[in-house]
Design a protein around this nucleic acid. Structure first.
Length: 507
RNA sequence: GCCGCGUUGGUCAAGGGGUUAAGACGCCUCCCUUUCACGGAGGAGUCACGGGUUCGAUUCCCGUACGUGGUACCA
């Protein structure tokens, strides 16, 4: 397997935002493909036109790009196994479905939606709230198994609306080896006759994955655990159509859960944190759902936190770059059980990445933020120096505004309460004189600003510590930020003196 | 209901027949810093339950509970 090309695919449907579970699945797909020197393929599952949302396909690729994941083959990147949109492969599915009918593994079903509903209502009971179209039920329905051959032929010729269903065998144990769960098995009698080809001629997911995986020579198929229950259908299809020996290896990823149960794609707002990679603007509903990107997450942190939610390399390492993940990832170490998403920890990862990365990697984001708030950034070098000074205090990108904006504009207000109780005439005098001395400084740098301050304090017989906090309030407006003298050095002589004088009027 | 999958602190988790059951986030205390962080040192808190198997089970087996997914002409 290692010798021949590993081909892994991610098959999203363009129906909405890319949520956490989705991104993690792509990520694992991608890591596995890269680690084994294989191809990473993105195929679009757009066979359900009713749910199709304009722009969703592009959105998916935008998210991947932001995460640093580049597909080798996709509708946008090209490749030798196209088309990469299921809607463009419609013709071939019909052939395979007919082939299955001929071999006796599938059949035509002419039941109308109304008739199906009637059947379900009739059979519904306390014990069986959702009756299936299964081995016993199909004998009482309108299909090519129960109707005479000539009648079936006639209906087909008249183009009567129909679907093709798989004929689940009776009393057969269907099992396969999942790369994460190990041996998984199902009893065929308990699985229903899934629709393979819809009345509109489009395949259902079941037929499409199998046919596409075969035609695209997929070797490994990783998907969310929500697919595990329908795996027996896929296994059977592989057996009937292409042979089990050609079937890709399956891996069903554990689910990502919300704070209370399952993580719903919808109201992410109720958790207070995003559930999508990037802002998702639903053209159908007009709803805007916030993404991790826009919330202020770095892509490095985002993929890092997702990668280790359900996987670890067995060491104590927690911070991984994409390159390290490619090197260290192994599907065998992926957890079986689902994990609750913890936003606090997610923020911690972002904080770590902000600290770890050189500010030049993300200063453009902060610059955009400042610009949008009306602060023009002219001196990039100076700007980066400021960011370097405050980055330890920033968890999300927007934090840079509160942590650094005072370097570029006078504080809007002062935390008067922090200084007033201990204020005295001595201190006013000190600062007045300090201003004069500062104004006289030729070589404006941190050492001299601090020395001047301390010597004057000693001369006035005031503890420097009692003066530093007021000075901070004057320059910053509040009790936070790097060393005061560092700030003074950064904002310049004129600005420092101005801020002190202005504050003095109020203190 | 039925079927599948799962279950180590509040959360993410290492481990796996005999361990003082790692580590991280969060929380608390202290140190550093006359700010806020960063950093450092500590602390509280755990093997879902019941039966087996075994000299011994958190680890293996069987049940139960709980969680979660499926049960669509959605993916």
């Amino acid at each position: 397997m290692e010798q021949s090309t590993v081909r892994v695919r991610f098959a999203p449907s363009p129906t909405g935002g890319l949520h956490l579970g989705g991104v993690r699945t792509v990520l694992y797909n991608y890591l596995f493909a890269r680690k084994h020197g294989g191809k990473f393929i993105v195929r679009i599952e757009d066979t359900d036109q009713s749910r199709f949302v304009e722009g969703a396909e592009q959105y998916i690729f935008d998210c991947l790009k932001w995460c640093g994941i580049e597909p080798d083959e996709s509708p946008l990147h090209g490749g030798n196994y196209g088309p990469y949109r299921q809607s463009e492969r419609k013709a071939s599915y019909l052939e395979y479905a007919k082939d299955l009918v001929e071999k006796g593994f599938a059949y035509y079903a002419f039941d109308t939606p109304e008739e199906l509903e009637e059947m379900r209502n009739k059979l519904k009971s306390e014990e069986n709230p959702s009756p299936q179209y299964d081995g016993t039920v199909r004998n009482n329905m309108k299909n090519s198994l129960t109707m005479p051959a000539d009648e079936v032929k006639k209906l087909l010729e008249e183009n009567t609306r129909h679907v093709i269903r798989i004929k689940m065998p009776g009393q057969e144990t269907i099992s396969f080896t999942d790369m994460i769960h190990g041996e998984v098995s199902f009893e065929s009698d308990l699985v229903d006759d899934k629709v393979l080809l819809k009345a509109d001629g489009m395949p259902t997911y079941h037929l499409a994955v199998v046919v596409d995986d075969y035609l695209m020579k997929i070797t490994h198929a990783f998907r969310g655990e929500e697919w595990l229950s329908s795996a027996p259908v896929h296994i059977l299809l592989w057996k009937y159509l292409f042979g089990l020996e050609n079937m890709p290896q399956w891996a069903h990823m554990p689910l990502i859960l919300g704070p209370s149960g399952k993580l719903s794609k919808r109201d992410g707002a109720k958790y207070g944190f995003p559930v999508f990679a990037m802002n998702w603007n639903d053209s159908k509903t007009g709803e805007l759902t916030e993404g991790f990107k826009e919330k202020g997450f770095l892509p490095e942190a985002f993929i890092n936190l997702l990668a280790v939610l359900g996987w670890n390399d067995g060491t104590e390492q927690e911070i991984f770059s994409l390159e390290e993940l490619i090197e260290k990832f192994s599907i065998e170490r992926v957890h079986k059980g689902g994990a609750k998403f913890d936003f606090e920890k997610a923020k911690w990862y972002n904080h770590e990445w902000i600290k770890k990365l050189d500010v030049s990697n993300y200063s453009f984001l902060v610059k955009d933020l400042f610009t949008s708030k009306g602060i023009a950034v002219n001196d990039e070098h100076n700007f980066n120096q400021v960011l370097e000074l405050v980055k330890d205090r920033c968890t999300l990108i927007p934090d840079f505004y509160t942590q650094a904006s005072y370097f570029f504009k006078t504080p809007d207000s002062w935390d008067i309460e922090a200084v007033k109780p201990k204020w005295s005439e001595d201190k006013t005098a000190f600062f007045n004189e300090y201003c004069i001395q500062l104004a006289a400084i030729e070589n404006w740098e941190i050492g001299i600003i601090e020395t001047t301050f301390k010597e004057l304090a000693a001369a006035k017989n005031i503890k420097p510590g009692e003066l530093q906090l007021p000075m901070r309030i004057m320059l910053v407006g509040a009790k936070f930020g790097p060393a005061v003298f560092e700030i003074a050095a950064m904002i310049g002589k004129t600005e420092t003196v101005t801020r002190i004088k202005n504050a003095l009027k109020v203190f």
